[in-house]
């Protein structure tokens, strides 16, 4: 076979294109993986995406569609996941909100169904569909240098109207709600602000820079510490539980005393 015949072989074009694609893909993956992690991860991330795709098809495609393009046909609904980013997947799946146990106004927090490795694979697959916020790194949500008081001010301005000033959560319309923040981790809080899950608006870095997010995380951690200078906090739910307390325990004690004092001595 001459070189000419090789060039003229009918499979040549296809092979060249395939070869070029492979070279570009591997090269691109190598370049990007240098930025992200070490070289062995290159091969791993390709398999990770594939592993994620398998998990996706088993657990998520029923609602979100085979291509993650979303379904909204009246009988079932799942939003498109193209471009939501790894952070959204990590938040929804690691907090157990996804997969949904049953259709509801809102996905409740529950023990996660997937292992951390599986969540990583799912996140890698969804991230591969389109550009979106990545999972934040530890130093992004590290609040150790943040300003606590500024965090409080930001929290009251941006968060308290739904999550309550003490982070205890609050009701929204039609059975929806802003959940309590008492068991949210710094990573989850950061991801939630970044991606705006469910009814929550999102706070991208353009409107709320990283330091402000860290300050808010610092304030939520302060709320979580449960520090209550005044004694039992009655759930920090405000005057409602205070009223319940005075009508039950409080008045109960005084009425018991009144009955005791008013009792006839025999």
């Amino acid at each position: 076979m001459t070189s000419t015949s090789l060039r003229r072989h009918k499979a040549t074009g296809t092979l060249v294109v395939l070869g070029a694609l492979l070279a570009t893909g591997v090269g691109y993956a190598a370049v990007t993986s240098v930025a992200e992690a070490s070289a062995p991860a290159t091969a791993a991330s390709a398999t990770l995406v594939e592993e994620g795709r398998q998990l996706y098809l088993e657990g998520c495609a029923t609602c979100h569609g085979l291509g993650a393009q979303g379904i909204n046909d009246g009988s079932s609904y799942g939003p498109s996941l193209i471009g939501v980013g790894a952070a959204a997947v990590d938040f929804q799946v690691a907090t157990g909100r996804m997969p949904l146990a049953a259709p509801a106004n809102q996905a409740p927090r529950k023990p996660p169904v997937y292992t951390p490795e599986q969540i990583e694979a799912l996140a890698a697959y969804v991230a591969s569909l389109g550009p979106g916020p990545a999972i934040p790194t530890e130093d992004q949500y590290d609040s150790s240098d943040a300003d606590l008081a500024e965090g409080g001010e930001l929290f009251r301005t941006n968060c308290a109207q739904c999550h309550n000033a003490a982070g205890k959560g609050g009701a929204l319309s039609e059975g929806r709600y802003a959940p309590t923040l008492m068991n949210a981790t710094p990573k989850e809080i950061y991801e939630a602000m970044l991606t705006g899950p469910q009814n929550m608006p999102n706070f991208p870095d353009s409107t709320m820079p990283e330091e402000q997010k860290q300050a808010i995380i610092a304030f939520v951690e302060h709320l979580q510490s449960g520090d209550s200078p005044g004694g039992f906090a009655l759930g920090s739910l405000g005057p409602v539980t205070e009223g319940v307390f005075i009508w039950t325990a409080g008045l109960g004690l005084l009425l018991a005393a009144a009955v005791w004092i008013g009792a006839k001595v025999r």
């Binding site: 109207q161 739904c162 205890k168 959560g169 609050g170 802003a178 739910l237 005057p239 009223g243």
Partner: peptide, 9 residues
Amino acid sequence: VTAGSQPDW
């Protein structure tokens, strides 16, 4: 404003 704003009972 804070969620769960209530007056005294």
